[in-house]
Nucleic acid binder design. Structure first.
Lengths: 237, 237
DNA sequence: ACCTGAACACCGTTCAAGT
DNA sequence: ACCTGAACACCGTTCAAGT
């Protein structure tokens, strides 16, 4: 009795490192990073857990590869909106264009990460650096230098941007559950101990009482911070 | 035959949530966050793993508590250098002082985190927010408002600062292993694909050939970014 | 060359039982 | 009230064995 007749999905395809990595990304996208175990991943691929070790050294290597897959996606998206070297022969004066180009690259990166919300956490734990991440940063350096920033300022810029260059920041408060209708409600019975925060929340909530995305629009805040930094850097030109 | 006579360290002290949490912090400090398992922690305390569950709901609750311990340490250090409300009756004009006070608080937070290098990773995974973190932010809000920033700008400020308010940033490249004597060496055989980065590294390394901390001084870069942001915010006053 | 099964040393956690 | 031992369902990984 053949495997297919027993209702078991036989291995449909031979494994490869690339197939393993892309399946891992898909699994994390669908069920979160906690679901990404060697056993579960193998199951998704119709193989046994041990088979993965032929294509991947260990779990750490798997995560390095997963990060690189996401980083390649970012690189591609960023190159599509602001390549280096610039292809457009009609680019305006470099000094004016660098900010826009860097901004476009970073917002494109952010758009990619919104599809992989688990990725920032994984990026944080990686010690080896993905080639695609390095390429992305090389392009940022090129654009900033072309805009008239010194290498020294560009170097500082990479540090200031940090993970923002890849489109994410470390938010300490989860806007998801903190929001609700009334943001200051979450401080109930606690407000007298945090008078400043309570005051701020009351006013900010009042200013924009019915924003669709809750009282903190992630995209708006990300862009605000990005522009604050880019403007600050431009002033050092 | 008593337990002590058999050479086994009998439980010297009764457990408590506070003792468990502080032991967890110490364990992570000494052996890294990966060593922080329920079994290992119990062993350090001279008890059985299952005993911990009487004082802590589960591992998630343990990590929430651990984060709060670190956050209380931060709060205390920050209040020591820049309390709110300000205690000094001779404070200069508020507009000039807010930046310095916020800067002091954040650098004090950073000093604490340098003693707990594993903490940022744990902060990232927490969804519940630590009371001590909320208090620290309340004080930042107070100082900024006192400095003449509108609630709206202060709100943006908290988002821009993000984890920086607690003294850490997400660095994508590990300065530890990337450094060495020659930073551009790490791009060997790759330099032609990343000409901008290679150019930058050559010049930056040359500028400061023998800095003790390697080619990227974390503290310098952190302060550079912090000041860039604070100056940008001040301009919105 | 590529894949597998059994086995090992770990996890976090439940539950009934001890003092 | 506080702590424990045995047991369960998971991990990542080694290794010898299959095709």
């Amino acid at each position: 009795m053949p495997a297919a007749a027993r209702g078991e999905p036989a291995p449909r395809l031979r494994l490869s490192r690339d197939r393993v990595l892309h399946a891992a990304v898909g699994l994390a996208d669908r069920h979160g990073i906690a679901a990404l175990t060697m056993r579960r991943l193998a199951e998704d691929l119709g193989h046994e857990a041990m088979s993965l070790y032929y294509h991947v050294a260990n779990k750490d290597d798997l995560l390095d590869g997963v990060v690189d897959v996401v980083a390649r996606e970012i690189l591609e998206a960023a190159d599509a909106v602001a390549p280096w070297p610039p292809t457009d022969p009609h680019i305006p004066a470099a000094g004016l264009a660098w900010k826009d180009a860097v901004r476009r690259r970073i917002l494109a990166a952010r758009a990619v990460l919104l599809r992989h919300p688990w990725a920032p956490q994984v990026f944080e734990t990686r010690t080896a650096m993905s080639p695609a991440v390095v390429l992305h940063h090389d392009r940022l350096v090129g654009l900033m230098r072309g805009g008239g920033l010194s290498y020294d300022v560009v170097h500082h810029a990479l540090h200031v941007l940090g993970s923002r260059a890849l489109g994410f920041t470390q938010e300490l408060f989860d806007p998801g559950d903190a929001g609700g209708d009334d943001p200051s409600a979450m401080l109930d019975g606690f407000a007298d101990q945090v008078p400043n925060l309570a005051g701020m929340l009351r006013e900010v909530a009042h200013t924009d009482p019915d924003s669709t995305l809750g009282w903190c629009d992630d995209q708006t805040e990300f862009e605000f911070g990005l522009d604050l930094i880019l403007d600050g850097l431009d002033r050092l030109r």
